[in-house]
């Protein structure tokens, strides 16, 4: 039996990228369903995605942030019985050619969660120096808490199997969710596997984290990680 695959594409003001992203995905993965979660964009993202007729569209009336948007995707995947959910960012950072790398460990029952990591093979866009420091800090904290080395905690290029979808549909952090989700999943004993991928520098739009926000980001995420790790159940 063929596995039903859903590609979740969270999009906030990505009018310059979204059409290219979904067109390429559809060409490369004709059997998968695409789901664009428009996270309260104020530009033409919604219209462009709708007019393409290539993807299902979920339109959040208010901006929830990346976590809230991706969680909506998990709820969708749960409701319409998908076996695999892929998270693929709408800003052109991720490479559609590498999706099969993420799905194959799940198809082979070798993992519940697969993370595309920039740092396993040091190819492609490696992010800026200060960000790599932040990512290193997450790596250290997370590997202490879940006793597994995750080299790219902030990667948003991920694949999940059915049981992970079920769990995340009701347990996904709202803002800056990626490192925290790894703790949640690791504590629940989901099997997490990393595969090496290349990422591009974003081709348009705005990163969700910049400037002074990065300090807030680090503090918030580390606090969330520590709280998550002492939370029961």
């Amino acid at each position: 039996m063929n596995k039903k695959i859903l590609v979740i594409i969270p999009a906030y003001n990505e009018e310059s990228n979204i059409l290219k992203v979904i067109t390429q995905l559809k060409e490369h993965l004709p059997d998968a369903n695409l789901l664009v979660v428009n996270d309260g964009s104020t530009d033409n993202t919604l219209k462009i995605a709708k007019d393409s007729n290539l993807a299902y569209i979920i339109n959040l009336k208010q901006n929830l942030g990346i976590g809230g948007a991706v969680q909506t995707g998990f709820k969708f995947a749960l409701k319409y019985n998908y076996d695999i959910a892929l998270q693929f960012d709408g800003d052109g950072q991720h490479n559609y050619m590498e999706i099969s790398k993420l799905t194959s460990p799940i198809l082979g029952n070798k993992a519940d969660v697969v993370i595309g990591s920039r740092f396993l093979d040091k190819n492609g866009f490696q992010s800026t120096f200060t960000r790599r420091i932040g990512i290193k800090i997450f790596e250290i904290i997370n590997s202490i808490i879940i006793r597994q080395k995750i080299s790219d905690n902030t990667s948003g290029f991920r694949a999940y199997n059915r049981s992970a979808i079920e769990f995340l549909a009701s347990n996904y952090p709202q803002d800056y969710p990626e490192p925290e989700a790894i703790i949640l999943l690791g504590k629940r004993k989901f099997k997490i596997v990393e595969v090496a991928v290349n990422m591009h520098e974003r081709s348009g739009g705005q990163s969700s984290i910049a400037g002074l926000q990065s300090a807030y980001y680090m503090i918030k995420v580390i606090l969330s990680i520590l709280i998550t790790s002492i939370r029961r159940g």
């Binding site: 299902y56 979920i58 339109n59 959040l60 009336k61 208010q62 929830l64 809230g68 409701k79």
Partner: peptide, 16 residues
Amino acid sequence: TEQNKKIIQDNALLQF
């Protein structure tokens, strides 16, 4: 905030 998030999500899924 939590309730609000849930309402926005469920509203979008129902709209779909």
